[in-house]
């Protein structure tokens, strides 16, 4: 059951990821990215990260990607024109990427103990309670710094957006 779920959603994630790269229209890419995020949320659930699975959908799919789609719709961005001079990038880039991935797969397979398998329900430490405890004890300072970062980002976005109205 775990394996089937993993394979199905991993396939969806990779398929959507490939679609993101090959589609020329930004809205198709955005939708593919949402597909990747949705299937990753399921994989997080399989890994016992139920809080993050929900956060993934709320923050990434529900807020960030809506913002992307909003901007694409607002600018009415069309499909990009195919640049002719970029063929050499594909000629060398794609094989190099495949080699890189093969290398990583090889390294991961060699160095990780093969006995360990991921089973749903074996690790239940990813609930809201555990994350909350950890976040507000050990990681309090990073948490505060990140909230300041968010504040700065809000200021930045407002300043940039305001310039546009004038």
């Amino acid at each position: 059951m775990d394996l089937i779920l993993f394979l199905v959603f991993a396939a969806i994630a990779v398929g959507c990821g490939i679609n993101l790269v090959v589609q020329t229209h930004p809205i198709s890419s955005a939708l593919s990215l949402i597909g990747v995020m949705g299937s990753l949320a399921i994989l997080y659930l399989l890994l016992g990260a139920e809080f993050l699975a929900a956060a993934q959908l709320i923050v990434y799919a529900g807020a960030i990607m809506v913002l992307f789609v909003f901007v694409i719709m607002l600018l009415n961005a069309g499909a990009e024109r195919k640049p002719a001079s970029r063929s050499y990038a594909k000629l060398f880039g794609v094989p190099l990427l495949v080699v890189f991935l093969g290398l990583i797969a090889y390294i991961v397979q060699t160095f990780l103990p093969k006995t360990e398998g991921v089973q749903f329900g074996k690790f239940t430490g990813g609930g809201a309670y555990e994350i909350g405890i950890k976040l507000f004890t050990d990681y309090l300072l990073p948490f505060e710094i990140v909230s300041v970062l968010i504040l700065v980002a809000i200021f930045g976005a407002i300043v940039l957006a305001r310039k546009e109205i004038d």
């Binding site: 394996l3 991993a10 991935l101 991961v108 360990e116 991921v118």
Partner: peptide
């Protein structure tokens, strides 16, 4: 691999 468990490395490769 067994049907009810996924090798950890597969997640990393994904």
């Amino acid at each position: 691999p067994q049907l009810n468990s996924v090798p950890l490395s597969w997640y990393l490769i994904l």
